[in-house]
Simulated assay, not measured.
Amino acid sequence: MAPPKKKHASGQPCIIPGGFAVLSLKFSSDSPAQHKVYVKEHRVRAEKNSHRPLDRTLFVLNIPPYCSEAVVRELFSQFGCVQSVELRDHPGSVQESAPKLSKFFRPAEKTGFKVGYVVFQDSSSVNSAKSHPDDSPLVVCTEERPVKTGVQKWIHQYSETFIKPDKLQQIVDSFMEGYDKRKKEEEQRQRNEAEQEQEDEEGWVKVTKGHKGAKARPHSEAANKRTLQKEMRKKKRKELMNFYTWQQRNTQKEHIAELRKKFEEDKQRIALLRAQRKFRPY
């Protein structure tokens, strides 16, 4: 493992239960207070994506609100070249399919302590960050890297709420161009599939090949409509058969009830005849 460029104190890293290493933060060099963050190598077997490689990702807890992604990148860049930084409110898997919205249309971010995922370009940087001694705090705000807080931060956030019309128009135009392009590609793909799945003179239909193990079927809107209509007809026939079956069963029950009623009447008539019978020898 290559040693870090920055010389650290002679202390030992502080490891707490759970495998987390403790790193100390100081807002400025003359600040007496220190803030603790907890780092650990990110190892989640269920998460399989290229955004968080298991051997180069550092999981960070208890990141203070005044540390943005740029600040976190600068703090951990002393351990090695940082590829990407991701801050979240809660730990979780990355959402690759979610569309990336512009900053003008994003909901307001929650202010509070966050968790972070720091991806390095070299796996040795993760070990360097974990082995950093606790008695050598990292400085957040320096002359080269000033961090705005308090009134200055509020003024900056308020000024950022004003959107320049020309910049907003550029973002909207670029989004609409991409949307129109995707729309045309989707329409062209549907037309190509419809042409491939048309019936020939002998009634054969060419279907597209699905993934391995899947049953090949036409993947067009017309084919899906035909399949839906077929299922609806099958459902109606089944309901009609069930109706006839219920009607026959009801008729049989009524017939059995009538036979039982007639049997009881015959029993009463026979008992009455036996009671009225008299002995007449002559």
Rank of each mutant, 00 (worst) to 15 (best):
K6A: 11
A9C: 09
C14K: 13
I16F: 03
P17G: 04
G19I: 03
L25A: 00
F27W: 02
S28C: 05
A33W: 05
K36G: 03
K36C: 15
V37I: 14
V39E: 00
S50Y: 13
D55A: 09
P65S: 08
Y66G: 03
E69T: 10
F76C: 02
S84E: 05
E86W: 08
G92D: 01
A98K: 11
P99A: 07
K110M: 06
K114Q: 07
V115D: 00
G116W: 00
S128I: 13
V140N: 01
V140M: 07
P146V: 05
V147A: 04
W154M: 14
S159H: 12
S159C: 13
K164L: 15
I171F: 11
V172N: 03
S174N: 09
F175V: 08
G178I: 03
R182H: 05
E186R: 10
Q188L: 09
R189I: 06
R189A: 12
R191P: 05
E193Y: 10
A194P: 06
Q196N: 10
E201I: 12
V205W: 02
K206S: 11
K206Y: 10
K215L: 15
R217S: 05
S220M: 00
A223Y: 02
L228H: 07
K234L: 15
K236C: 12
K236F: 14
E239R: 09
E239L: 13
Y244K: 11
T245P: 02
R249L: 12
R260E: 11
F263R: 12
E265P: 01
L272I: 04
L273R: 04
F279K: 07
R280G: 02
P281N: 02
Y282G: 10
Y282S: 11
